[in-house]
């Protein structure tokens, strides 16, 4: 904390003491009721949130970890303690959990690697266009944001039928315009990844675009004017004014998009059923199947913790990346 921040409660309440007054001062401090209140005030303000946070975040985290140390099937009365076996199983290729888990991690990685860059760049382009003045701008903004309003169930069922290889309208119209009309969008890789990433970008780009748009509107117009006066062309203005101005927003969007992509579940659950085989079955999908359908809560909890660890490392890396740039 820098010296310019306002004095803390302690600094106000207890000014620097001369050594000879120290003893007197401590004896005087104890009986004072006002001091107790001043100590409790911030906590009282935090209390409502802390209760929710404790009940719905901290307690489940601790409980989840406890579950991960057991052979945990909640419908059975016995939940034997297994120590770290659920974790070591994940790293033992002979166990029944390791295969599906790492396949899921791989599927999630593929999805994240392809969806995140697109979800950062395409919405930025859309936001820049939306930020221009032209007729029908509001309609344009609404059109791009509209898909985001729909839930994953609607999106999944809709695209499952549109993209069907044999009866889908996408292949039909591709055939009409002379393109191949037998592309297995949902039952073969890499086509299924194209479909899943494509649908996700179409669906959620509106959200990122709106955040970018808010960021763009925060960049002072004078900067652009000054750049113009200095003879900067459109690209140079974008490179040197827009991008730096968007940095905090970009950092937020990147983080949120990565987390959302790693958590992808609904699209592959509804559109591809994890097909072909289990190749598009993401890690969240695997965890759901393991814990909620097969009642192997212990294994599922252990998988979640390993995934969380990966996600934390990834988030730190992103955080660090954006901080570095800021310092430069």
């Amino acid at each position: 904390m820098s010296s310019s921040t306002r004095p803390t409660t302690k600094e106000v309440a207890a000014p620097p003491l001369a050594p000879d007054r120290l003893e007197v001062s401590t004896t005087r401090r104890a009986p004072s009721g006002r001091r107790l209140t001043s100590w409790a005030t911030p906590w009282l303000f935090l209390l409502p949130y802390l209760v929710l946070f404790g009940t719905f975040v901290v307690a489940p985290i601790v409980y989840g970890f406890w579950i991960s140390l057991h052979d945990y099937d909640y419908t059975l009365p016995g939940k034997p303690w297994v120590g770290l076996r659920n974790y070591t199983n994940l790293f033992d290729s002979d166990s029944i959990t390791a295969g599906p888990f790492w396949d899921g991690m791989q599927a999630t990685a593929i999805f994240t690697v392809f969806s995140v860059p697109l979800l950062l760049i395409v919405p930025l382009a859309v936001a820049i266009v939306m930020n221009q003045r032209f007729r029908g701008r509001n309609l344009f903004r609404a059109v791009y944001f509209a898909p985001y309003v729909l839930g994953v169930a609607v999106i999944g069922v809709l695209w499952r039928f549109l993209l069907d290889r044999n009866i889908g309208i996408v292949n039909h119209y591709m055939g009409v315009v002379g393109l191949p009309d037998d592309i297995p969008w949902l039952t073969s890789v890499p086509e299924a990844w194209v479909a899943l990433v494509g649908v996700t970008v179409w669906w959620t780009l509106g959200f990122n675009a709106v955040i970018y748009l808010a960021g763009l509107q925060d960049i002072p117009a004078e900067l652009y004017e000054a750049a113009k006066v200095d003879g900067a062309n459109a690209w140079q203005r974008f490179r040197n004014v827009t991008l730096p101005g968007l940095r905090p927003v970009t950092s937020f969007v990147t983080m949120v998009t990565i987390i959302a992509s790693v958590n992808m579940f609904g699209q592959s659950y509804l559109m591809t059923l994890g097909q072909p085989g289990t190749e598009t079955r993401t890690v969240i999908y695997t965890i759901t199947e393991t814990g909620l359908r097969n009642f192997r809560m212990g294994d599922a909890a252990a998988m979640s913790y390993v995934l969380t660890l990966f996600l934390m490392v990834l988030s730190l890396a992103v955080f660090w990346l954006f901080r570095e740039k800021k310092a430069a």
Binding site: T55, F56, V57, A59, P60, I61, Y63, G64, I67, Y74, Y148, G151, V152, T200, W203, T204, F207, N208, V256, T257, I259, A260, S261, V262, N263, M264, F265, G266, I284, I287, T288, G291, L292, M297, A300, A301, S304, T308, L311
Partner: peptide, 23 residues
């Protein structure tokens, strides 16, 4: 942006799921 998966606040949603709403 949580419609993509289970929620952007991962830890909360995931652990709630696993805890089956355990209070």
């Amino acid at each position: 942006n949580d419609n993509l998966g289970f929620g952007s606040s991962i830890s909360r949603r995931r652990f709630m799921g696993l805890g089956v709403g355990a209070a």
